[in-house]
Simulated assay, not measured.
Amino acid sequence: MRELSRRRSKGRFVRTLRPVELDQLIRSHRRLRLSLLITVTAIAGLVVFAVLTDSVALTGIGPATGVLIGTILVLPQRRLLARLGLSPEEARLVLEMERERRSGAPALTPAARARRESVRGALFTLVGLACVVAFVVAASYFFGRAGQTVEEDAPTDPWFAASFFIGFAAACTAPALLSQARTHFRTARSWRGED
């Protein structure tokens, strides 16, 4: 019989899972992240291959293939969440609470937790700013070359295509990283009692 007890986390009630269910959720989440990493690496390799070989055929099927791959990757996770009776938000909270429990964070003093969150916020800020710099460099290269005429038989400039993808990835990643940094700094302030 399923446990129906609930714990309060960040103002929300989260159902407590049995150890077997929690282990299934953790393993499923780990498999999902690993398959996502492998898929993104494979797609990046295909994009590089398409750019280097001037293959236009691969770009036409890209969006549909991406949607299909994403759907296939998420299906087992969604089935497990439905079986466990969890929404994606509740599963995320359960995984976050378990990660925090395993890290030993509950045993830390509030000052140590505030310090830890401040360090995390600083790291996310540095990586986010590095993404902003990468975006600026990639965008200036891309837009600097975009209006130039090119000879018909001239070799393809692989950096032109790479600058587009690097700039796009940096433009998508930087706001998320900076938002995460702000969240960590806000958490640090709350542990210090400043909020």
Score class of each variant (00 low, 15 high):
V20E: 10
E89C: 01
L22Y: 02
M97T: 11
M97E: 11
H29C: 11
G45K: 04
E21I: 01
G104H: 04
G66N: 15
H29R: 10
T39S: 15
D54Y: 09
G104V: 05
Q77D: 12
T41S: 14
G66D: 13
A44W: 12
L81R: 07
G104P: 00
T59Q: 05
G70Y: 12
V47S: 15
T53R: 12
G70P: 10
E21S: 03
L81E: 12
R33E: 09
R27T: 07
F49I: 05
V48F: 09
R33D: 11
L46P: 02
V40R: 09
R115L: 15
L46K: 09
V51Q: 07
I26P: 04
R102S: 01
L25S: 00
A42K: 08
A64L: 15
V67G: 12
I61Q: 10
R27C: 02
A112Y: 02
L36P: 07
I61K: 06
S103F: 08
G85P: 00
V56N: 08
G104S: 02
R115Q: 13
V47N: 14
F49P: 00
A82T: 04
L52E: 15
A112I: 02
I69R: 14
L34E: 11
I61R: 08
G70T: 06
T71A: 14
A111C: 05
Q24S: 03
T65E: 10
V56G: 07
T65F: 14
L73G: 10
A42Y: 06
P63A: 05
L36D: 09
V94A: 01
L84R: 03
R92V: 00
S103I: 00
T16N: 03
T65V: 14
